[in-house]
Simulated assay, not measured.
Amino acid sequence: MTTFTMKAILKARSETEAPRPGPTQMSDVPATSRDTRKSGSPSRPDTRATPTPARRDARADADLLAACWKGKLEEVKRILDTGRADVNSRVGVGRTPVMTAARGGHRDVVELLVSRGADVSLVDDRGNNILHVACVRGDWKTVEFVLSLDGVDVNARNNFGQTAADVARGRGHRQLSDLLLSRGTQ
């Protein structure tokens, strides 16, 4: 292949592909200092979902999910700041980034995602809500934070008829199951 042909191919590719976030790419999303708390409920963050970004990038969504799974808070911030990742994107069995972080027991990442508009009322393909998946790892602080959020149904049953308390008990987290039962789960 000639040098001219190779340059033309590379130029055409660069014009058709969306920029991908990377470690050296500067965010074009302005920093904000907006208060995410609802009036009348100072301890509960706003849980309204943000719309899908206009410049959504499937690669950014995948990177976001991977960072959430690993609990890499700074990486999650960087990816979200690019404005290319959907905070409510889905993967595998329909889990969102906030569900993925909750399953890993990464409370700090869960808090960040909620503050950035993650919808905590969503369920995955198996009917699990964020509380169900948070109970898998059994991280007490993550579960307590999830319980404090509006839009989380503590009595929800997944497709197998299990509540979050059932999931916690099944994973050997007896004290967590007792906590959930005291908060109203059946």
Score class of each variant (00 low, 15 high):
residue 2 T to S: 15
residue 5 T to P: 00
residue 5 T to G: 00
residue 5 T to N: 10
residue 6 M to S: 14
residue 6 M to H: 08
residue 7 K to R: 15
residue 11 K to V: 00
residue 13 R to A: 15
residue 14 S to W: 00
residue 14 S to I: 05
residue 14 S to T: 10
residue 23 P to H: 10
residue 23 P to Y: 10
residue 23 P to N: 14
residue 32 T to W: 10
residue 32 T to N: 13
residue 33 S to L: 08
residue 36 T to E: 13
residue 38 K to C: 03
residue 44 R to H: 07
residue 44 R to L: 11
residue 50 T to R: 15
residue 55 R to I: 06
residue 63 D to M: 15
residue 66 A to P: 00
residue 69 W to M: 09
residue 72 K to S: 11
residue 74 E to Q: 15
residue 75 E to D: 15
residue 76 V to I: 03
residue 78 R to V: 03
residue 81 D to T: 02
residue 83 G to V: 12
residue 83 G to L: 10
residue 85 A to H: 04
residue 89 S to P: 03
residue 89 S to M: 03
residue 93 V to A: 13
residue 96 T to H: 08
residue 114 V to K: 09
residue 116 R to Q: 15
residue 117 G to Y: 07
residue 119 D to A: 06
residue 120 V to S: 07
residue 123 V to K: 11
residue 131 L to C: 07
residue 132 H to L: 06
residue 133 V to L: 09
residue 140 W to E: 10
residue 141 K to V: 06
residue 141 K to L: 09
residue 147 L to E: 01
residue 151 G to W: 05
residue 151 G to D: 05
residue 155 N to L: 01
residue 163 T to H: 05
residue 164 A to H: 02
residue 167 V to A: 05
residue 167 V to D: 06
residue 171 R to D: 09
residue 173 H to I: 05
residue 174 R to G: 00
residue 174 R to T: 13
residue 178 D to S: 09
residue 178 D to F: 01
residue 179 L to H: 08
residue 179 L to Y: 06
residue 182 S to R: 14
residue 186 Q to E: 13
residue 186 Q to H: 12
